[in-house]
Amino acid sequence: MSTTTTTPGLYDNRTAFADELIQLARTDDRIVAVCNDSVGSSNLVAFRDEFPDRLINVGIAEQNMVGVGAGLASAGYIPFVCAAGPFLTGRSLEQVKADVAYSQHPVILCGMSPGMAYGELGPTHHSVEDFSWLRALPGLDIVVPADRLQTRQAVQQAVASPRPMYIRVGRHKVPDVSPAGSVLERGHFQTLREGTDVTLIGTGTLVSRAVEAAELLAADGLSVRVLNAAYIAPLDVASIVAAAEETGAIITAEEGNVAGGLGAAVASVVSQLGRDARVPVRILGLTEFAPTGSTDFLLDHFGLTPAHLAAAARDARTNG
């Protein structure tokens, strides 16, 4: 069992994102930021103040914004294209497909305030379809940092990567969950806790909740594996297969629609295993447009809590 270092407190990952971006931009003048009038909400005020020529604000024009990012990347720049997740991925989906993924221009698409971070603003402002939409695009990495450390490492990897990438940059405050000294690895889940009875796979805001659920289950005497799915694409097939072979059930949890998201990806792998290796899977996420409520209220509403994860694990073990 690896040790989890938990720093007291809850953090908005956008702060770590902006800090790391500015730090790297000081020594790499290829780094630019592109946004859609979201200088404030994308936490780019300090970047703009320090690098006024390298912050390109195209106004409220997301399709153009993604195309401009592709053009900058094609000419050797490293563009961090920042906008609230729903508009970046929804309004510009065809640009993300054709100009970024299919063209393989190494743009970094930064989905700010993803999931249900904009709680009461409602489903128009929730980015809960992004996994489903973007998983269908070959050649686009999908990264979901769970905390401040992973957010910084995701920014570093984006600068070093020759490939396009989508990063969910969380706004809803979360605790630190990554072990000290851990490294975000492309295409790998991070093991936060070893176990043999059941595996909980969380991503983003759901990672700390999976860790808490494991504590609840451990109190029942269960040996629980917890995986942080910080990379959704490329998918860590080996870890999923190992979880199926070595533990009795898999529970996934994501702040996103269950149609085509992380859970669907995991289930697709498990369902294609041999009969003896298949295990029960439970997929926790959204199944409908959210009602009105705060982010925390909505996470509870959709059963994305430690208690619900633990209950799903017990159910999978009992009922198969």
Partner: peptide
């Protein structure tokens, strides 16, 4: 070929990005 095209309305935004890059460089 500098960028993949096909769906209409994609080329000019990319060209704007390339022109911005040339200005920055």
């Amino acid at each position: 070929v500098e960028t993949n095209t096909g769906p209409l309305g994609h080329g000019l935004p990319v060209a704007v990005g390339q022109a911005l890059a040339a200005k920055l460089a």
